[in-house]
């Protein structure tokens, strides 16, 4: 192996080691957990803002509740369930699949599959062929073309 090839291999190994190191599983701090959970909950007095992002007093109080529950050792599901018990599935920014709000996820998939099915049928269908014209129709058209060409010849004559 030449020296340059060795350098490339060493560089690739270094990149791989760096990526592996940065992607290693590590324990989430309580503050990170609070941020993550509150980013998944809807602020009840805002328009489309999460509890984490909202500056409102209600959101601040909800963040405090989440922080307290995290400190008490509750699981993510237990905390989310407590919010859902008070405000329904609406309070979760990503609606759960196992309820009627799961339609939010299912409808686009069903619509996409239906569209694909239509497109597939169209592609597989044989090209549409026009019916042969009747001999009388052909004769009439030829006669009309001949008549119009004769008129053109007359008009072009100086």
């Amino acid at each position: 192996m030449t020296r340059s090839r060795l350098l490339i291999v060493v560089a690739l190994l270094a990149v791989l080691a760096a990526v592996s190191w940065s992607a290693r599983p590590r324990a989430e701090t309580p503050a990170e957990r609070v941020d993550r959970i509150t980013s998944e909950l809807r602020c009840v007095v805002c328009q489309g803002l999460s509890v984490k992002d909202s500056p409102s007093e209600s959101a601040r109080q909800m963040r405090d509740i989440v922080a307290q529950r995290v400190a008490e050792g509750r699981t993510d599901d237990q905390i989310r369930d407590e919010f859902r018990a008070s405000y329904g599935d609406w309070v979760v920014l990503s609606p759960p699949l196992a309820s009627w709000t799961g339609l939010v996820w299912l409808v686009p998939i069903v619509a996409l599959l239906a569209g694909l099915a239509v497109a597939w049928r169209r592609l597989r269908a044989p090209p549409s062929t026009l019916p042969e014209p009747a001999p009388a129709e052909v004769a009439a058209l030829r006669e009309r073309v001949a008549r119009e060409e004769a008129l053109d010849v007359v008009a072009d004559t100086p």
Partner: peptide, 13 residues
């Protein structure tokens, strides 16, 4: 004082 009662009732506003 800390919004816990409103939270437990599910108060929006």
């Amino acid at each position: 004082t800390d919004g816990r009662i409103a939270f437990s009732y599910g108060v929006f506003g």
